[in-house]
Amino acid sequence: MATRPLAPILGLLLTCSAAQAAGHGVKELSPDHLTIGPGELSVGVSQQWQQPLPQVQRALIVIHGRLRNAQTYLHSAEQAAIQAGQLSTTLIVAPQFLNDTDGSRHALPDAVLRWHANDWMAGDPALGPAPLSSYAALDKILERLDDRKRFPALREVVIAGHSGGAQVVQRYALTTQADKALQADGIKVRYVIANPSSYAYFNAQRPIPTFDAANCPGFNTWKYGLKELPAYAEGQKHRQLEQAYVERDITYLLGAKDIDPNHPALDKSCEAEAQGAFRLERGKNYFEYLTQRHPQGLNQRLVEVPGVGHNGEQMFTSPEGQKALFGE
């Protein structure tokens, strides 16, 4: 599949606006679909994955942010792969979690999965055609990749997201068990979490000394904490979730200039403010929190990207982003 030319405004599109996301349906629908039960997940792919791809050694699943602009993220990931010299051996998959406004704007077929507003970020079930969690949809992508007839040379899967997509990746890494099947088949699974607005904590501890929990009763409720976990994680114990999470290979990729406490897409709720004033601070606070809880060490790392703020394309195409995504 030929790489499409990249518009010069890609980076601006990746810096999504919460107001835009709430008020309008998605502009561009992804052209492909993955059948999941009675529903179809909208996806973009860099190569035709309906046929065997014996040359593919890595799959990169890239998650869009609030604008649900999966095609923009697909093109940005393709650019990163080109710069790394990895495009021909990498399959890029960009799932698109459409919502009810998208259904109205595009007259979506009944079979296409869609969620209410931004509920897909927290792993909530779809509105229709079946109550499928957005995280369960990601499980199905992993299941498809774990097919040695289609992908005989696949050696690793990287699940990456920026901004709202990074929120998905962090919570998915915390709750999924689907990666175990791939690892059992010799396929490494890694996660790249770039500039999310917030993280899910494992207890009531928060880094801001002045935080008043009494005035923010939801601060430890999902997706900010482990109270009231989504149905996707039903039956999993908090201790087991945390232990599995800290054992996963995770890179926290943070823009050194993502320091605007008034960024238009920054989560300004009290639940998020308890984690820090801006994204860089929140990421550093969370990593410090994990290292304090697990002094024996983590299979994780925090990497700052110099000179970059809240811009997905610049994050992923930076030298630090290249190494995180492709190990180069």
Rank of each mutant, 00 (worst) to 15 (best):
M1Y: 14
A2P: 09
A7W: 12
L12I: 15
S17G: 10
A18V: 04
A19D: 15
G23K: 12
G23I: 14
G25I: 03
V26F: 02
V26K: 00
P31H: 13
H33M: 05
P38F: 03
G39C: 05
G39Q: 04
V43H: 02
V43F: 01
V43L: 09
V43S: 04
W49A: 02
Q51Y: 08
V56S: 03
R58W: 13
A59P: 06
L60H: 07
V62Y: 06
T72W: 00
S76N: 11
Q79F: 03
A80G: 07
A94E: 01
D102A: 10
D102I: 10
R105S: 09
R105W: 07
A107N: 15
L108R: 04
P109W: 05
D110T: 13
D110N: 14
A111E: 14
A111F: 03
A117W: 06
N118R: 14
M121P: 03
G123M: 05
A130W: 07
S134F: 00
Y135D: 05
D139Q: 03
D147L: 09
L154A: 06
L154H: 01
R155Q: 14
V157T: 04
G161I: 03
S163H: 07
S163K: 09
G165N: 02
A166Y: 00
Q167M: 14
A173N: 02
L174V: 01
A178Y: 06
D179W: 01
L182A: 05
A184P: 00
D185G: 08
V189G: 00
R190T: 04
I193P: 00
P196Y: 10
S197I: 00
S198W: 07
Y199K: 06
T210V: 15
D212M: 13
N215C: 11
C216Y: 01
K223D: 10
Y224N: 13
G225C: 15
L226H: 02
E228Q: 15
P230C: 12
A231S: 10
G235N: 05
H238I: 07
Q240N: 10
V246H: 09
V246W: 08
E247S: 08
D249T: 08
I250A: 11
Y252K: 09
L254F: 13
G255L: 03
K257S: 07
D260L: 04
N262H: 15
H263C: 05
A265I: 13
C270W: 02
E273R: 14
E273V: 10
A274E: 06
A274H: 01
A274C: 07
A277Q: 06
L280I: 13
E281S: 10
R282Q: 11
G283Y: 04
L290T: 03
P295Y: 05
P295W: 08
Q296F: 04
G297T: 08
L298G: 05
Q300R: 05
R301Y: 05
L302W: 13
V303W: 09
H310D: 04
G312S: 13
S318M: 13
G321S: 10
L325V: 00
F326R: 04
F326W: 11
G327A: 08
